[in-house]
């Protein structure tokens, strides 16, 4: 099974070609250029340089969120277009689950703390445990404050490996609160398309139209409207 995976959920952008769990090629960059400009040239070069044809792809995979709203949409829209044109299935995976695969080299039982900067004083986070050479989910994807996360961590013994575009933020925050997590080394810190392909596992995928972003958060306008309606309700 030949999978083309992409990730555009945060600062870095990457594309990978993975065949039956083996990484054939991966391009990534993190230099501030817009993903809408860089993603497709990467995909183009990936196929050209590996000598594979787009028709050979079995399926597409993409990090569906959480993440930057616009970033996630660039990846989803691009994968929808590919899936639609090639008439191939697409798999959307949790960005947090994808980055959990970066902990593969860690000791068995390590807790993987996946962290993205969600702004507004929060992290997008999920915890996994490394068991039998793969991440096993401990919590759902969620938006959580560093304070709450530190409280949870204090309840638990053992090694915690922090990964993701919010890893440093999370690592520093946990240390300030008296904890001693392990920070992912730089090449593994940011989420990757390879992680997306691994998280997709052997899921067959769906039609392009069923592939949808998972934001974990309403738009600002919707949040403010809800708050107004709630206030009104309280006054009545």
């Amino acid at each position: 099974m030949l999978t083309l995976a992409v990730d555009t959920s945060a600062k870095s952008v990457s594309a990978a070609l993975v065949e039956d769990g083996m990484l054939l090629a991966q391009y990534s960059q993190c230099c501030g250029l817009t993903h809408s400009r860089t993603l497709m040239p990467m995909v183009e070069a990936l196929l050209r340089n590996t000598g594979r044809k787009r028709e050979e792809l079995s399926r597409l995979a993409v990090s569906a969120g959480p993440g930057s709203f616009t970033g996630v949409r660039i990846g989803i829209a691009a994968v929808k277009g590919l899936a639609w044109a090639l008439e191939k299935p697409a798999v959307g995976v949790s960005t947090l689950e994808a980055m959990a695969w970066h902990a593969l080299g860690q000791p068995e039982g390590t807790v993987i703390c996946c962290a993205m900067d969600a702004r507004r004083g929060q992290l997008y986070n999920a915890l996994f445990a490394l068991r039998g050479g793969q991440p096993e989910r401990l919590t759902p994807d969620r938006a959580i404050s560093l304070e709450e996360l530190a409280q949870e961590e204090k309840m638990r013994a053992g090694r915690t490996f922090v990964v993701g575009d919010g890893a440093r933020l999370c690592y520093n925050g946990l240390r300030e609160r008296g904890l001693a997590p392990v920070l992912a080394p730089p090449p593994l810190e940011h989420q990757s398309a390879w992680g997306v392909a691994m998280a997709a596992g052997d899921r067959p995928g769906t039609d392009a139209k069923e592939l949808l972003p998972v934001y974990l958060r309403l738009s600002q306008a919707e949040r403010e409207r809800q708050a107004r309606l709630q206030k009104k309700g309280e006054r009545l």
Partner: peptide, 20 residues
């Protein structure tokens, strides 16, 4: 609206690529 335009552009680019 840039976020809106990006959706169409991203989709159209990969359709063009996918169909060659």
């Amino acid at each position: 609206l840039i976020g809106a335009v990006l959706v169409g552009v991203s989709f159209a680019k990969s359709v063009a690529f996918g169909l060659g």
